[in-house]
Simulated scan of single mutants.
Amino acid sequence: MRQSVLIIGSSNTDMVVKTEHFPKPGETVLGGTFLMNPGGKGANQAVAAARLGADVRFVAKTGNDIFGKQALEGFKDEGIDTRFVSESATLASGVALITVNAQGQNEIVVASGANMDLQPVDIPDNAFENVGMALLQLEIPAETVRWALTKCAEKQIRTVLNPAPAMQLDSGFLNGLYLITPNETETELITGVAVESEETLRKAAQYLFEQGVQNVIITLGSKGIYLASDSFTGIIATPVVEAVDSTAAGDVFNGALLKALADGQSLEQASRFACRAAAISVTRMGAQSSAPYQHELESFFKHD
């Protein structure tokens, strides 16, 4: 039987405004296009993995509102197993307010809502059955993340932690992790090392190894990623594209990475695959809507 990938995390509705430049404090900027898209780091990663062919099981919590109902329908349309998406009795669905400038950079403010009501009691034991790999982020309660990581370790499920949004993490989150995938900001907050060169990247990775992490990927935006593992250590470049919106690039990377690892690819192979998926995503507006399908990944880079 084919094993599922388990993603435990957040579901939001993204409200996006495009503008030439970000407003300064107290400044009003007349923006352009407004978009309302399904988002949330967990949901973005689930959709990215599903579109690339993974058998995705998603655990999340939404509100009893139109945003939650639309999100659930969207997951089902993507072929995602939604049996473990529950509904909060008291909190609204999560919402993210996103501004995107002319260079494709973004600023995001999140109202977490029901995401912060996802508790261990909402995740039954059978959610972990027949799971090959798991992926978590930090847009749900930290105690739920820690509990789920422990549960995965008990069941010998290889687990990836995407430590976003940035927060300090103790060894209880790190010890035994198969893989951690912080960006530069998150890396500095967790390790105390500002990653400005390959030497500092190595130093940050070494700190994480000493905390019990088995493999490290530090994402570097348009510069690619730094992979540190037994079989490969170094920078893997991302394809050069014209970026219009980087909102979900990291999420697409993580979802694609999970899918490739679950398929048995090496960390180096999976990283290159995920970099290509993320590169496509930044050429499109939106979060989940930017995630490529497998056939698009193949056709986009057919000249390589």
Rank of each mutant, 00 (worst) to 15 (best):
S4N: 12
I8Y: 11
G9M: 14
S11Q: 15
S11A: 15
N12C: 14
K18N: 06
H21L: 03
P23N: 14
P23Y: 02
G31S: 10
L35W: 05
G42N: 15
R51S: 12
V56S: 15
F58I: 05
Q70E: 06
E73R: 09
E73S: 11
E73H: 07
E78N: 14
E78F: 07
T82K: 13
T82H: 06
R83W: 01
F84I: 01
A89Y: 00
T90K: 07
L91Q: 10
L97N: 13
T99K: 00
I108L: 06
G113R: 10
P120D: 07
I123C: 06
P124H: 03
A127D: 07
F128N: 04
E129N: 12
E129V: 06
M133L: 08
A134M: 02
L135G: 02
I140Q: 11
A142Y: 05
V145E: 06
V145S: 04
L149S: 07
L149E: 07
C152D: 02
C152P: 01
K155E: 05
A166S: 12
Q168E: 07
G172P: 01
N183T: 05
T187I: 06
E188M: 13
I190G: 02
T191Q: 05
G192S: 02
E196D: 11
R202K: 02
A204R: 01
A205N: 00
G212C: 11
N215K: 08
V216I: 12
I217S: 03
G221K: 04
L227T: 03
L227V: 05
D230L: 07
I235W: 01
T238W: 02
P239V: 04
V241G: 04
E242P: 03
T247A: 10
G250I: 10
G250Q: 13
N254D: 04
G255N: 10
G255V: 07
L257K: 10
K259D: 11
L261N: 12
A262H: 15
S266K: 15
S271I: 06
F273S: 12
R276C: 09
M285I: 07
G286D: 11
F301H: 04
